[in-house]
Design a protein around this nucleic acid. Sequence first.
DNA 1: ATATAGTACCTTGCATAGCAAAGTACCTTT
DNA 2: AAAGGTACTTTGCTATGCAAGGTACTATAT
Lengths: 119, 119
Amino acid sequence: MNIENAQVQMRKGILEFCILHVISRGEVYASDMLEELTSARIMVVEGTLYPLLTRLKNAGLLDYKWVESSSGPPRKYYVLTDNGKLFLDAMQDTWLDLADSVKTIIKKTDEAIQTQKPS
Amino acid sequence: MNIENAQVQMRKGILEFCILHVISRGEVYASDMLEELTSARIMVVEGTLYPLLTRLKNAGLLDYKWVESSSGPPRKYYVLTDNGKLFLDAMQDTWLDLADSVKTIIKKTDEAIQTQKPS
DNA sequence: ATATAGTACCTTGCATAGCAAAGTACCTTT
DNA sequence: AAAGGTACTTTGCTATGCAAGGTACTATAT
């Protein structure tokens, strides 16, 4: 039970959400996504990303096409399907609700501490 | 791949954090926590909470004492240990960072959409 | 031509942790 | 003593992140 593990756990639930977000902006392939997410300080690695993309594709939320590259092997460029867009919207609602709930909990704790130790 | 499952996944990472928060306010037992979290719209059930409390206790973040009840079986009242307080602070930093990262991602998508469809 | 390096995608095996459901134990009320 | 409520526990399942290793294609250097 270390803080690194706790950070991993927190990240878990939102990876799918963040990846759908990045794809929603336009066609991207895996390395684009890794770069985008890393620059937003959301740590992801290949072993997480590829299986996740496959799951999302199989669930009908994503589609992809192969595109030749001028500097290496071909790439899978992903886009959201209509279902994927709906799903992303639903996830965003969930996230905003959750973030608000946590905000409430933090605030309530702060108030409890203020009451215990009035300045 | 349904939205309910996505909600569960998002919740996962923050349950520990929210539970430590509730305990940080003062001695509580499991039913108190369930009530607190439910009222904050963080859904938790017994099968999740009890094993989690045991894990946190074994990790040295929590301590408890048995207290007789006037209306049923005895209860385990939990408090944070010093280590638990430090851990909670670290988790809060992690949470705030994460929430900020997600906010950035959402904002960036909104901007991308604005650019595509200028009013 | 062949070897090396770089890029891109995929797979395997493991560990963590939420959850539904069933179980145990204690207390109060009738 | 039987029934019902409260509280804590356990079992089996599932989902999913991740480290590590693997496959395959392309470009460059020799």
